[in-house]
Design a protein around this nucleic acid. Sequence first.
DNA 1: CTGAAAGCGCTAACAT
DNA 2: ATGTTAGCGCTTTCAG
Lengths: 338, 338
Amino acid sequence: MKSVTIKDVAKRLNVSISSVSRAFNNSYDIKKETRERILRTAQEMGYYPNPIAQKLTQKKTFNIGVVVPEFINEYYSEVIRGIQDILTSLGYQVLIMQSDNKHERELKNVKTLIHNMMDGLIICPSVKSKNMDYYLDEINKGYPIVFLNRIEQSFPANKVLFNNTKWGFFATEHLIYQGYKKIYHLSGSNDLGITKDRTQGFIKALAKHGFSKDDYKVIETGILPENAMARVQELIDNKDLPEAFMCVNDLVALSTISVLRQNQIEVPNDIGVVGFTETKIADLVSPKLSSVKQPTYEMGKSAAEMLMKVIKKETMSSNTIILNGSLNIRESSIRANQ
Amino acid sequence: MKSVTIKDVAKRLNVSISSVSRAFNNSYDIKKETRERILRTAQEMGYYPNPIAQKLTQKKTFNIGVVVPEFINEYYSEVIRGIQDILTSLGYQVLIMQSDNKHERELKNVKTLIHNMMDGLIICPSVKSKNMDYYLDEINKGYPIVFLNRIEQSFPANKVLFNNTKWGFFATEHLIYQGYKKIYHLSGSNDLGITKDRTQGFIKALAKHGFSKDDYKVIETGILPENAMARVQELIDNKDLPEAFMCVNDLVALSTISVLRQNQIEVPNDIGVVGFTETKIADLVSPKLSSVKQPTYEMGKSAAEMLMKVIKKETMSSNTIILNGSLNIRESSIRANQ
DNA sequence: CTGAAAGCGCTAACAT
DNA sequence: ATGTTAGCGCTTTCAG
């Protein structure tokens, strides 16, 4: 694995290593001819400046690190697409690390990335992270970091967010306007700020429309199918069914519909269902799933653009960008005429 | 962004930098006390060996690079989980790059990763890549690379694969056993080896069971919903419908079912459908989707384990691991009694 | 325009 | 057990 170094090239052409360096860095103070000659034979010899060595002497690496908690649905995949589309067009390379929803792993990932001299970081935190001190320290040292999703709005850093409370509210209100009188929310973990916010939105909407305690319920199912299915089955067994479900995400919504169907309960004729964080299949299943679409791709783009500004020191303060979503009403929440 | 270096620590304690280095590398030739003293004040000062500098002098970085073409479905997400589970337990860090299905970007990613001194690479190629020379060169130089999926079985390198032909065959044969007499295959692009293989399997199964040219068709829809939906609608309009569809993947299968439903054609009562590369929702939709499950997580694990062997030089030759899948028969391909 | 030399932060002989 | 020194491959003054 011995590779060609700057010295080899220099020796071969009887020039100094500085000249070779200059040739590659497009320096002004080098004769065009020598430059070309050097580049040519370097090419031949398969020489390429060693980025590690470059990093040791320079400040910029043109590498950006991205930390995500997971890839289980399309969410972060699209965020990453947004990030990459902006960044690669500007000549940056994007290195991704996955934290598996564990804060410790996330911290380790961030450190690895920083130590590997990324020019900046986009961090999608795992959970309402306890230990943000390290990040704050780095930011204060001047290290460019932008956060995306799952972070408190009050956190003093650059970040791009989605307003889960607001859209949880709208999704619920849509159900109310459809005339559903008893609505349950299948919620995510209370440890997760974003799903907690959806629950807040749910409760706010009910409060606004004068629902009484008997007319709604929040059931913490988490975001995975198995548990959601079990809880819905319980409700059926206990004859404790609402007229509609507001679900923490599409997977839970689909699971709910599936269990209901197994029990000969039809959506939306018997019960209405609305999902959240719309996935591609919302439009392909039957009934088509109503859901809140998050601007994932745009969030990635915004975060990348924000990071660029931070790197170029065009912004100092802690900016927060909150992007808008949309409520896509399809079949699963359209109440039959009565 | 000035950070503490080994010198600072040395100066502070009036020891040489070698001692500090030794302390951190757990070298045998250092007194326990000094070691502890150094580590303690290093801690205080916030010192941490600069990995870039370390890389310049050492060979090992304990970083592994992974290149994937995309994240659009769960496929590569699970592969990555498999890879990470093995590698992080061995003290490695996994850096991921995404090629967006473009060979050029893939090549650039690979170079970035190699130049950043990853100890090894797991490459999931984008398409039947034309230009594999660079990879071959690196492998010949002794650089540890393992390929995963979407690569010719004949390619002389370590790789882990799925036998798409075989499982395409099984999926089709299942349809035949169900008694479907006319079967169409909605195929992926012919440029993509893996989907082409599924088509091969499809054709083989039909040949084995004596289907005539009139009883089947291969329609190249690609792997995205929009086009598949349009093509299926065309078939309906032309009254050119088969008794069953063998689809290149779940998304296309779901799209097909969706279009059929819009035209009052029910699956599986009127037409059978089977998918490929099973996704989580196969079990949640109605009708539940029959599909071929690929061992994604295991493929990731195998690739990681293989890479470790290559790195430890426990293997030299070009090994190929082919993992088994399963055909999960659900509702969408169960032919009604006649 | 080009070369010599210092230095980036660290490791690894080589001394002592 | 500890210090000294020579690199690792490159960039960047500083001379000329």
